[in-house]
């Protein structure tokens, strides 16, 4: 990345974050809640995009990492009464470990096999949630107790039933993930990742261990998706098996493809558009998931690079 490209991206991302921060003073209450959800889902999509957009691996099973975070945090809080920050940290660690194990196996395959294998592992994870219903309460899921609706942090008490608090926590998580990913991509390791994406064979013949490069990104991606899951469960106080289902894996893919794979802001944009669309449509019909199918096909046929990918191609080649 040249110096000017680095600066442009820095300004763009800082601008977007600033806008998101200011938004809470402008939006009406209902939309604050929705924006909070969007930001958490954007973290999930950002994690997915780290893998698809920057090292070129398309996973069809990312719901398993979201669920690993969700249940990692929710179950420890529900059954063991862990404090929320501790449960959150454990959940992120747990999803990173799951990603390490799954990645070590799944990354032996490529392309279509990789997609199918990740899909099947995620299906196993989903079935586990259903099977261990004594712990997870299966499809009905669990609501976290009232005691888990407040966080004690360095002497402060954060009230999670407050929409503003939740908004700012989600904002912080998104900002943190965005900054971390940006720093990673701008580093030497990030350069290797995109080199693997662009030309795997060449990169190996330049002396890089392609497998470990992929695994590293897989773990980053899984941990970020897990952080999103943990935040979702803790902020909204509910954990359920839907979050582990195939549909959640597909939504991460959809957000990323629509906004533009391989762009930092793309997933956020994709979440914004899709969640808004699904929200509107669900008022009209119970078959609102139709929009997932339509958008997937429209994007793959006519905008395979997504919105920001197309913008980059036409107007802003510096976009990271």
């Amino acid at each position: 990345m040249t110096k000017s490209a680095y600066r442009n991206n820095l300004v763009l991302n800082a601008g977007v974050l600033l806008m998101l921060f200011v938004l809470q003073f402008v939006l009406p209450d209902y939309h604050v809640l929705m924006a909070t959800r969007m930001m958490v889902l954007a973290v999930f999509a950002l994690g997915f995009n780290a893998l698809l957009g920057y090292i070129g691996l398309l996973s069809l099973g990312h719901a398993m990492f979201f669920a690993a975070g969700l249940y990692g945090a929710g179950l420890t809080v529900y059954h063991f009464g862990w404090s929320l920050p501790f449960a959150f940290g454990f959940a992120v660690l747990a999803s990173a470990v799951v990603a390490l194990v799954i990645g070590a196996v799944a990354l032996r395959t490529i392309r279509v096999s990789f997609m199918i294998v990740t899909l099947m592992f995620a299906q196993v994870a989903y079935l586990m949630v259903i099977y261990f219903a004594e712990w997870t309460n299966g499809q009905e899921g669990l609501s976290l107790p009232m005691s888990a609706r407040a966080v004690d942090l360095f002497g402060w008490t954060l009230d999670l039933s407050s929409a503003v608090t939740r908004y700012n926590l989600a904002f912080l998580l998104l900002a943190l993930c965005l900054v971390l990913l940006f720093a990673y991509l701008a580093s030497a390791r990030g350069r290797v990742a995109t080199a693997i994406r662009d030309n795997e064979g060449r990169t190996e013949m330049l002396g890089f261990n392609v497998f470990s490069g992929k695994l590293e990104m897989f773990v980053i991606s899984g941990a970020m998706s897990g952080a999103a899951g943990a935040a979702y469960g803790l902020l909204f106080g509910y954990i359920g098996s839907t979050f582990a289902s195939f549909q959640y894996s597909i939504e991460a893919l959809l957000f990323t493809l629509l906004g533009g794979a391989g762009t930092l802001i793309g997933p956020l944009l994709g979440v914004l558009l899709m969640v808004a669309m699904i929200d509107k449509l669900s008022e009209l019909t119970s078959a609102y998931l139709l929009v997932i199918g339509v958008v997937l096909i429209v994007v793959i046929l006519w905008f395979p690079k997504g919105i920001l990918g197309t913008v980059r191609e036409r107007w802003a080649p510096w976009l990271l």
Partner: peptide, 22 residues
């Protein structure tokens, strides 16, 4: 294209399923 067709058939899955729901 193998990857693109998988994504497209996932789209098709939702379209068929949700249309039948309607």
């Amino acid at each position: 294209n193998p990857e693109a067709t998988i994504v497209a058939t996932i789209g098709l899955l939702y379209i068929l399923q949700q249309t039948v729901l309607i």
